[in-house]
Computed example of a mutant assay.
Amino acid sequence: MRKVILWTIAAAFLLGVFETAILSHIQLLSALPDLILILVVYIALYNGTVVGITAGFFSGLIFDFLSMAPMGLHSFTFTVLGFLYGMVYGKYNVRRFFFPLVLGLSATFLKAGIILILHVLFGQSIQIYNLFAVSFWIEVAENALCAPLLFMLFGLFPNAFEIKEL
């Protein structure tokens, strides 16, 4: 488990830097895909709730350091998502194109819902998604389209991102 968590932390850092340093400077993108969210979903799906929660917490902590969000916002959000998607562990074959697309789509909506709940609980310091804004729907589409690609990429390294059962 430790090896998967360390690889996840390294991948989350690289994806976070890629997202904030490179993707944020592309003028065509009015919203950015949440690559770390997709990483957490992948790790939770292939390793279960314990690894999903741990990976979600540390990946979110890294993303909190790289972004301007309140400290702990993404950490909490990704931890909850790691738990929820970890509950699906071993139940479905997610190696195809369609299922990762649906997972990327659903994870974005769940993330928006969790952030809305945190906004209600903690007030104005937490920015919520406007479900009627074009930028939100662009992010939903980007996450849905990036999920199958990232799932295939992470699938190339099963020794790093998946715990092998004996």
Rank of each mutant, 00 (worst) to 15 (best):
75 S>A: 15
7 W>M: 13
66 L>A: 12
19 E>H: 10
14 L>S: 10
151 F>S: 02
23 L>K: 07
108 T>P: 09
88 V>H: 07
4 V>M: 03
111 K>R: 15
147 A>E: 12
20 T>L: 14
64 D>E: 07
12 A>Y: 01
60 G>H: 06
164 K>E: 12
101 L>T: 07
38 I>P: 06
6 L>R: 13
118 L>F: 03
133 A>E: 11
73 L>A: 05
24 S>K: 13
4 V>N: 03
107 A>Q: 12
2 R>P: 12
46 Y>D: 04
71 M>V: 13
158 P>K: 05
67 S>P: 10
119 H>W: 00
56 G>T: 00
48 G>Y: 03
100 P>W: 05
120 V>Q: 09
61 L>W: 08
70 P>L: 04
92 Y>F: 15
9 I>T: 14
87 M>K: 12
122 F>C: 00
46 Y>N: 12
94 V>Y: 13
141 A>W: 06
18 F>E: 09
165 E>F: 12
26 I>G: 00
69 A>D: 07
93 N>S: 12
121 L>G: 00
109 F>G: 12
78 F>R: 05
78 F>T: 04
76 F>G: 09
29 L>P: 00
33 P>G: 08
99 F>R: 08
42 Y>G: 12
160 A>Y: 12
78 F>H: 08
83 F>I: 04
138 I>S: 05
40 V>P: 09
62 I>L: 13
77 T>P: 00
90 G>V: 08
79 T>F: 11
164 K>C: 07
19 E>T: 14
107 A>P: 09
79 T>Q: 09
136 F>P: 03
70 P>Q: 03
114 I>G: 04
87 M>Y: 06
130 N>Y: 05
89 Y>T: 04
106 S>M: 11
72 G>V: 04
95 R>I: 15
96 R>E: 14
118 L>W: 00
67 S>E: 09
113 G>S: 13
51 V>L: 03
108 T>F: 08
45 L>E: 09
107 A>G: 14
131 L>C: 08
78 F>G: 02
108 T>H: 05
40 V>Y: 09
143 N>R: 10
150 L>D: 04
118 L>S: 06
29 L>C: 00
80 V>R: 06
38 I>S: 05
132 F>C: 03
73 L>K: 06
122 F>M: 01
5 I>H: 02
86 G>Q: 09
89 Y>N: 11
3 K>D: 14
104 G>F: 05
136 F>W: 04
163 I>L: 13
19 E>L: 13
26 I>Y: 07
162 E>Y: 12
109 F>W: 15
35 L>V: 10
7 W>G: 10
77 T>Q: 02
80 V>N: 07
55 A>G: 07
129 Y>T: 01
119 H>A: 01
58 F>K: 02
70 P>D: 02
42 Y>I: 03
147 A>C: 06
30 S>W: 01
140 V>Y: 10
4 V>F: 01
62 I>V: 15
11 A>C: 10
67 S>I: 10
6 L>M: 14
4 V>Q: 06
124 Q>C: 01
77 T>K: 07
122 F>K: 00
12 A>S: 10
56 G>P: 00
36 I>L: 13
45 L>S: 04
51 V>M: 06
161 F>N: 10
129 Y>G: 00
131 L>E: 07
103 L>Y: 01
144 A>K: 02
60 G>S: 09
71 M>L: 15
160 A>F: 15
116 L>Y: 10
105 L>H: 01
53 I>W: 03
151 F>L: 02
165 E>P: 12
45 L>P: 04
